[in-house]
Amino acid sequence: MYAFNYVSPKTVRQAASALAKAADDGKLLAGGQTLLPTMKQRLASPGVLIDLAKVDGLSGIELKGRSLVIGAMTKHADVATSEVVKQAIPGLAALAGEIGDPAVRNRGTIGGSIANNDPAADYPAAALALNATIVTNKRKIPADQFFTGLFETALEPGEIVVKVSFPIPSRAAYAKFRNPASRYAMVGVFVAKRGGDVRVTVTGAGASGVFRAPALEEALKKRFSPKSLEGVTVPATGLNGDIHASADYRAHLIVVMAKRAVAAAIAK
C-alpha cells in the first residue's frame, strides 16, 4: 500500500468537504473489502482516505411505504440477517448472504459495493433489477442511470451515497455462479417481478459491468416461469471471456442462472 492521509469524519457534510478538498486524490472507505486489497496490490493509490465508518446516520434498514431503505454503510451481514429485509425482499437478503465470505460480509457495505460498481459485485444486479433509487448527499439517482460502465457510476466528484431505496417487488431472487477461484460472481442473475414488469439483470459476465437481459425479460413477462426461458439465448457479444469462462459459457450460464433465480423467486 502506498502512504495516504486518513480522515475519519463524523458527518456526511464533513465527509463531503474532505472529499471535495482532496479532489481527485480522495477515496471513500466504506468497509474497504475491495478497496483495501486493491490498494495493497498498489493498483489504487489515493492520497486521502476518508473513512465513513464513524459517520452518523449511514447505517440502518427501514421500511418506508412500499420501499425498503438501506443505509449506505449497512453491512452485508446485517442485510442478510435482517428480518425486515427477509420479509420485504427475501431475494435481497439471500444475495447479501452470498457476498464474499462471512468475514467480508461483516465489513463490506452496500454503499461501498454500489459506488464501486465492480463488474463482479452482486449488489449492482439487485439495485438495477429492483429499479432502486440511489440517494446521495446531493440528489436521488435511479439505478437505471447510476451504473454507467466498468467501475463507473453517475456519482460526481464530492458525491456520497447515503442510502439505497428498493421498491418492494412481488417476487425476486438471485442466482449466482461463483468463479471457482475468487468466488466472486462469474455470472450472477437477479430477477424481479413487480406487477406486469419483469427485470432480469446480470453481473459478473458483462465486459462493461452489470446489464439487463431484455430477451429474458420479454420471455418472463409472458409467463414468470423457468419454462419460459427454455430455448431463449443470450448473445455472447459484449460478455467477458477469461481463463475461467469464455463468453459463450457465460452466455449459457446467464440463462441457466436466470431459470434458477426464477424458480427460487416462485418458491419463496
Partner: peptide
C-alpha cells in the same frame, strides 16, 4: 464479529 485483519486498517479500529 469475525473480520479479516489483513483487509482492515488499524486506524479504522480506533
Amino acid at each position: 464479529r469475525a473480520v479479516k485483519s489483513c483487509t482492515t486498517l488499524a486506524v479504522s479500529c480506533d
